[in-house]
Write a protein that binds this DNA or RNA. Structure first.
Lengths: 193, 193
DNA sequence: ACAAAAGTGTTAAAATTACACCCATGG
DNA sequence: CCATGGGTGTAATTTTAACACTTTTGT
């Protein structure tokens, strides 16, 4: 069970993946996705929470992405890996890296990330739970832009994204503005419930 | 590990799911998806083959759908279930039932099928491996129509489906016709490689 | 006034859907 | 010649994408 722990850093407008430096076992000293072996009868969600504890991060939710079953992925022997996502606001003890600046990772974790990134990108704006956790309760269109850019690797059109936001159920634009320094201040978007 | 074993019956133009009557354990006597417990280090594909052996069916390929982890799904204790699909032409020793005429099933298998059916429907025409196994090397547009109807529960528009087929890479319409009895004979579609 | 940042408007292209109409075969 | 099944044509609708233009702020 490996977790893609995501954290959106509002100040820098970067989306980062939480990595964990291994201390033991194979690939000791290298960075890896936080992961644990699934205990018999354990729920995926609980295992994800255990994995996140490795980087001192809390997150109450996680969703499953895919299951990898290549027998050679772990030199200790063949194991399944269920890849899951989680979103957090804690920075914990993790090393946080952007998707576009990923260092080498232990096991087949680069492959896992490469495989899961487009899935996460596809969930943005479509999976409201996922989306809302990433954006937080309130955000600016620029944050939305940054999130999509970080996930997909390409900056979307501002105008089109504004319309996407306007069409999202549960999301409304407030009449408040937020200034970031220079330039025209942006409108604050807020989730309803 | 549970397998949704699919079989397209050309003569009746029905898509059927292979079910297995349990002889032991909980739910003995009831119908269930063929499944096995994943052995340590076993590949999903191999486990699926073992499961299919329960209904005396061979199939060289399978793909994963989702993983279910509800702890109460099996009265023997909490177990994960990776749902996978497989397509076969053998009838084996299974009970074959249409999606729309599913009897009660053991465990949470009805839920699994309900959850996976739309996923399978979404794979049709998009996942060429899956699609090709269902249709066989050659088929008529009517078979395509039947497949989509059986998977989605609604008959699509014939004209639109014809165009969908025409746009599929690797698929070509031959100049051969096939008569089914009464009515105008249909054109044979064939996969290239 | 100008550059930077945010937002609106308009249009083009593509995909989805719906439906009317024409063709080929068996009785 | 007509019912049945198969196929083509056309148009409306919606989605996605692209790009030009306007507004608001700080310096």
């Amino acid at each position: 069970m490996d977790v893609l722990a995501l954290r959106y850093e509002r100040s820098t407008r970067r989306l980062r993946l939480g990595l964990h430096r291994r201390t033991v076992g194979p690939f000791a000293g290298e960075l890896a996705l936080p992961g644990v072996l699934l205990r018999r009868g354990e729920r995926i969600r609980d295992a994800a929470a255990r994995a996140l504890a490795k980087i001192d991060v809390r997150s109450d939710a996680a969703g499953q992405l895919v299951t990898f079953d290549e027998p050679n992925r772990d030199p200790r022997g063949p194991t399944l890996s269920i890849a899951t996502w989680a979103v957090t606001t804690d920075s914990g003890s993790a090393t946080w890296q952007r998707f576009d600046e990923l260092p080498d990772l232990a096991f087949d974790h680069r492959r896992i990330v490469a495989d899961c990134r487009p899935r996460l990108a596809g969930m943005l704006w479509r999976d409201s739970d996922f989306t809302r956790r990433l954006t937080g309760d309130e955000f600016l269109a620029t944050d939305a832009l940054a999130l999509q850019a970080e996930l997909t690797g390409a900056t979307p059109d501002r105008g089109n994204l504004n319309r996407t936001l306007a069409a999202l159920p549960g999301l409304t634009r407030t009449d408040r503005l937020a200034s970031t320094g220079r330039g025209r201040p942006g409108t604050v978007w807020a989730w309803t419930p």
